[in-house]
Design a protein around this nucleic acid. Structure first.
Lengths: 214, 214
DNA sequence: GTCTATAAACTGATAGAC
DNA sequence: GTCTATCAGTTTATAGAC
């Protein structure tokens, strides 16, 4: 546990990291409960006592994976805090960095997603809910700001936030769970542009031009 | 298996249905892999051979639960097919019947959702994906119809469908997974109204009136 | 650190009596 | 139909040699 935090924070090909990688692959593919310690150590090319030496238990290796992932996601929220750019630009940036975090780390995100929106499968509790809700509330704060400074059209910030979150959430979920049907980065951007035309002040103006309004 | 389809299709308090109910509760609460046959029969107040007598295996009882659920969901899509009412009314009706199907049967829907968007947990494959995608495509067909007949504003039907599906999907998912944070039926309707104002022809007119446009 | 060998409990499933 | 008793295989986890 002492050498847990390698300088770059991620995988070299030490035995320890090969175990982590194998566990991520299997938990993502089959689920926590359906994955046995035997399978993890086989995939890592070691024997059982090695896993217990580094991680104490099956729960231990799971918790290390999820703690890292949770911290990574939390870091993304910082994209919102700098008020230099417009709400719209910050929203795009948040969607983009989140999309990156997901697509670069699909398997870990699949595990997290399964625990956030599925049954616990006997795994120890980790409060992902808090991370997700922080995300939702950060977006809501942005929407309030945008409506207040006139960048966005007036409306109920809560409801508009639900629509925006729904868009991003569905895109992320499809990318995780049905990649062949999912939006790519460009597709997500296009759908967000639809939201932009609907809820932003300049967006509505554009939309009306397009309609050649009366 | 012969007496599977009771007249009303659902639970009396026969031993068989008590087993089904116990299995639904446990699969929803802990997940398929983390639930043992022993727990199911204990919750139903019977012994193991009884479960194997009625359902042949753990997979058997799971498959019966999921087959019923899948059929129920598929039936909801019929709300779309009658072209008597407007696209908007049909969309509202679909959202409402789906919300009902979910909230009346939360535990079964949780299992289905976990299998649709989470790891298989060693459970036998059921093609929920097809049901979900049929839903998505039915909405897309409605949006195309609405844009074509002038009920909705012009735009890319695919992208608008993603926004609408995102709204409904997030509402359903929160209702399943974080009920205390979720939208109630009225809340879902309000968020859909936001979509209405954004993407429907009369909706935009209303929005512009509200803004007291220049 | 990594191994072989094994413990102790639990798993899905069944035989056979009633 | 429902039970008791039990099977064979798997599970997480560990003791102890190297």
């Amino acid at each position: 546990m002492s050498e847990a935090a390698t300088p770059a924070e991620h995988l070299d090909n030490s035995v320890r990291d090969r175990l982590l990688q194998a566990a991520v692959d299997l938990f993502a593919e089959k689920g926590y409960a359906a994955t046995s310690v035997r399978e993890i150590v086989a995939a890592a090319g070691v024997t059982k006592p090695v896993l217990y030496y580094y991680f104490q238990s099956k729960e231990g290796i799971y918790l290390e994976i999820m703690t890292r992932a949770s911290n990574d996601l939390q870091a993304n929220l910082e994209a919102i805090s700098d008020r230099a750019s417009s709400v719209w630009e910050r929203l795009l940036k948040l969607a983009d960095t989140t999309y990156n975090a997901y697509s670069e780390n699909i398997k870990t995100m699949k595990i997290m997603h399964a625990m956030m929106f599925g049954p616990p499968q006997g795994a120890p509790f980790v409060d992902f809910n808090a991370v997700y809700w922080a995300f939702h509330q950060a977006v809501e704060a942005m929407v309030k700001e945008g409506m207040h400074n006139g960048e966005m059209l007036p409306g109920d910030p809560k409801n508009v936030t639900w629509v925006l979150m729904g868009t991003v959430h569905l895109a992320m979920e499809m990318a995780l769970c049905q990649p062949e049907k999912a939006l790519d980065r460009q597709g997500l951007r296009e759908v967000l542009e639809v939201n932009h035309r609907a809820f932003w002040a300049r967006g509505l103006a554009n939309q009306r031009e397009n309609r050649n309004d009366d």
